[in-house]
Design a protein around this nucleic acid. Structure first.
Lengths: 282, 282
DNA sequence: TTTTATTTGAAATTTAATTTCATAATTTGG
DNA sequence: CCAAATTATGAAATTAAATTTCAAATAAAA
């Protein structure tokens, strides 16, 4: 336990009521405090600003500013940046929401290595390196990942297809072969359209790679390769925001891996495109 | 070597004279700076206080206060934080790349609060809450953020437009008014097409909100509101991957803030759409 | 019950950070 | 080489944050 926080904890009962409130708030959300003003902290802990200043003196630190500096050191040393989703309890002022989003997105990405199976990932890279056509499909929040993947893999020379229109893809699937890959992107793994296209693609001999929550959903069961995203705390305000981050992280990783495995051949073409971008930018 | 100090060191020759003086002083006495005020530091390094503030922005941190906090973290970590470096040094096997991506994405999101200016963010929310039409434009890696924003804000009832086609948007801009907002999304802030559309939109009276790196780019200068993303370590293998994550994080936060500020009115419609999704999913 | 000590927050003050703006220095285009 | 435009800079003004003062409320002691 870090020294400053434990000092606060130990002195908690010796402090006056207002000061104890402050101490309790700090112990709950230490990582938020360094960015706060006295006004913020006074609002959040329900006391006056003057009490904040007195609190600092009570626990032996001369000013609120010094206190914040000490706290940062403490937090940094113990590596406890934004540990709890207590941050979700914050009020919903715009900037609070920004911090909340930052936190959940970071946490979701952090949780990804735990849900993604290494062997499945390597299998996906292996399959992709011999694939010709790729198709990406995701609806709602997952459509962003599909579109992002579409761009990335097109840059690597694959013949890619994606579309929001179910029927459009339906008519393209018959052209898929054993060398093709169908990416089914769905957080829940239950979306009807995604499931139907997956089954159809599979019936054409294509490999179905699912990017879906690690959860025994229909899509999870039916996919050939499962790249699992973590199940993140569902907060109605946050919705599917963090899960899109994890989908993108997986896409990014696949992209880089293929980029790397294709080696020189791609790099040459990639630089051609890149130089053109720079030239056009003037 | 710690990342913030080395970042200062690396950028030293790119800075102007006054800013270089500040950088040099900080590199000499990093441990003193967190307890200093702008006045102290300006006296010690022989420049004006304004230059201090500008210096912070130049090296990619939104305010002097944030800078001091980052510096404390940095100093505290020095010598004990080899893990970051280790990860980036890893070989390029697929799973190594996955870890690398996870790491850089996480780090980028973590760095966002330091680059995003709270006031600018709140200004953006304010403007958006009274806006009618929104237009989003980003090319290359930034197009994902544009498309994602397009979906999100459409769900909130805005009249949204986005397209990859420069000329398509060109023909839509004359319909923008003082109540409209043009989102210019560009990491570098130099992309010609983005700049031209921004200027055109501005000439129509629309507010230009830029989502761009905290860097003195043309877009940074011309925008009405600047939502700055952190300048992340450029690794040629990683490219713009992490910066897209920070763009999305900002979009997410704006979306949630508006969602929240619009309150009941939207929630009702939102649930209608959502229930329909669930029903169709069977 | 009165007096005294303690706790507290509102308002005033002081201090710090940031922005604005005029000027000086530099670069660019003719 | 000069004029125009751009960029860099600090002084002053503004805005925001931290701290102090002080009066009222509460609790403890006489």
């Amino acid at each position: 336990m870090s020294s400053l926080l434990s000092r606060i904890e130990q002195n908690l009962n010796r402090l006056s009521e207002a000061e104890r409130k402050i101490g309790e708030y700090i112990l709950e959300h230490p990582e938020l405090v360094p960015n706060m003003t006295t006004k913020d902290l006074s609002k959040n802990s329900g006391v006056s600003e003057s009490s904040i200043v007195r609190f600092c003196k009570s626990i032996g630190i001369g000013s609120f500013k010094s206190f914040k500096l000490e706290l940062v050191k403490d937090i940094t040393l113990t590596g406890m940046n934004l540990t709890d989703f207590d941050i979700l309890q914050k009020r919903d002022e715009p900037y609070d929401l920004f911090q909340k989003v930052t936190y959940v997105n970071k946490a979701a990405i952090e949780a990804t290595p735990a849900s993604l199976d290494r062997k499945e990932f390597e299998k996906a890279v292996e399959i992709l390196s011999h694939a010709d056509k790729l198709m990406f499909y995701g609806v709602g929040g997952s459509s962003t990942a599909a579109i992002d993947a579409y761009y990335k893999f097109t840059k690597l020379g694959y013949q890619c297809t994606t579309n929001h229109d179910f029927h459009f893809l339906l008519s393209a699937i018959p052209y898929l072969t054993e060398q093709s890959v169908f990416f089914a992107i769905s957080m829940s793994g239950k979306t009807k359209d995604v499931l139907e296209l997956s089954r159809f693609a599979k019936s054409q001999g294509a490999t179905v790679i699912a990017i879906t929550n690690i959860d025994k959903s229909p899509l999870y069961k039916e996919a050939d390769i499962r790249l699992c995203t973590p199940v993140v705390e569902q907060d109605f305000r946050i919705g599917s925001i963090p899960s899109r981050m994890t989908q993108l992280t997986i896409i990014d990783s696949l992209y880089l891996s293929i980029f790397h495995s294709k080696g020189e051949k791609v790099i040459d073409k990639y630089h051609k495109a890149r130089n053109e971008v720079i030239r056009l930018r003037r």
